[in-house]
């Protein structure tokens, strides 16, 4: 986790939290179950592929991870620039 504090991050104009991070294209079979499971509507099908659209709304419920038949979804630290 490191010694970086929230204050350091916000001063640098970034925000960091644990959220959905990656859907592994090599493992994903495009079944779309994650788009059904996510209670926060984070994942949508785009051009036939499950796509992380609203990552900021991830509440780390892990429904996508648990329900994925191929362990293709992972959560981790996501860092973004704050407006």
């Amino acid at each position: 986790m490191g010694e970086v504090t929230e204050r350091d991050l916000s001063m640098a104009g970034v925000s960091r939290r644990v959220a959905i991070k990656h859907i592994d294209p090599d493992r994903c079979i495009r079944c779309g179950v994650c788009t059904l499971s996510c209670p926060n509507d984070v994942i949508r099908m785009r051009r036939g592929k499950p796509t992380i659209v609203y990552w900021q709304d991830c509440s780390q419920c892990f429904a996508c991870v648990i329900d994925c038949p191929r362990e293709a979804v992972s959560l981790g630290w996501v860092t973004v620039e704050t407006p």
Binding site: M1, V18, C61, F62, S74, G76, W77
Partner: peptide, 18 residues
């Protein structure tokens, strides 16, 4: 607490040591 434990693991944390 399966979900909190998965959450900590995704963050690279372990209650046993952190």
């Amino acid at each position: 607490l399966p979900i909190p434990m998965m959450c900590l693991k995704a963050a690279g944390l372990d209650l046993r040591s952190d």
